[in-house]
């Protein structure tokens, strides 16, 4: 199919004096995994929030399956959002609900599954992220890494077409990180899920990515398949990657 799943076109966003995004262009094809790399505070999270319509662009456009989402009203936006699952950087679990209620929330909102089916689905989704028997706990009782995995399970509960991961593995141990990477790959292979992943872990980025985009100074400094990006002559990209791969 020619049309990309997500198109970001000349996206600008400022917060007061802080001009964060200065004309970002990005295309994400259906069934691919795009990893966004970039320094802390470079606007990766801000970019991701535009993709799902949590922030409105000052200028430019975000097109999801042909629909420019900044032109949609709240209700149409909800319809588009139903295609997405999003993992927040800080998990953003509902702290007044138990883990089970958190993961079950999208199921209870958007499906007609019975209570028993919801419970079963919740158990499965938690097991996928390596958590067992934590349904009755509250988010405050979990470790940071566990919270992150619950956030992951919640984002995947409805088997969305597009999953946005804001640093899904930051703060996880290497084994769990590897596990989450496999999860992203499996979701693509088995369900054809389109993923956008923000990561600080260059190793896992090159492991899961079909394409990599490096965000710097409010612009995409390099974009393409991992091998191509690795060869990029852009000074920031070279410096950024050399810290991982060593100076060639």
């Amino acid at each position: 199919m020619a049309r990309p799943m997500i198109q970001v076109i000349d996206l600008h966003k400022s917060f007061g004096e802080n001009h964060v995004l200065r004309g970002v262009n990005l295309e994400v094809d259906e069934g691919t995994t795009t990893v966004i790399l970039g320094g802390s505070g470079s606007g990766k999270s801000v970019l991701m929030k535009h993709v799902i319509g949590l922030l409105r662009p000052d200028r430019g456009s975000v097109v999801v399956e042909g629909e420019p989402i900044e032109e949609l009203d709240e209700r149409e936006l909800q319809r588009v959002r139903a295609k997405f699952g999003m993992v927040f950087q800080a998990a953003a679990l509902f702290d007044s609900m138990t883990v089970g209620e958190n993961v079950g929330f999208p199921l209870r909102e958007h499906t007609k599954l019975s209570e028993a089916e919801v419970r079963e689905r919740v158990r499965q989704k938690l097991e996928v992220v390596g958590l067992r028997g934590v349904e009755a706990k509250f988010p405050a009782e979990l470790s940071g890494g566990m919270r992150k995995r619950v956030g992951l399970a919640r984002a995947l509960a409805l088997d969305p077409k597009i999953v946005l991961y804001d640093e899904p593995t930051t703060g996880l141990d290497p084994i769990t990180t590897d596990y989450v990477d496999d999860m992203i790959l499996e979701a693509k292979r088995q369900l054809g899920v389109t993923s956008v992943v923000i990561s600080h872990d260059i190793g896992s980025a090159f492991h899961v990515a079909d394409r990599i985009a490096v965000l710097n100074d409010g612009l995409i400094a390099a974009e393409g398949p991992p091998d191509e990006v690795r060869q990029s002559r852009h000074p920031f990209v070279q410096r950024f990657l050399s810290l991982w791969f060593g100076r060639a």
Partner: peptide, 11 residues
């Protein structure tokens, strides 16, 4: 803590 944003992303 972005819980309101999370609600919105879940449509």
């Amino acid at each position: 803590s972005e819980q309101i944003d999370a609600l919105a992303t879940m449509a």
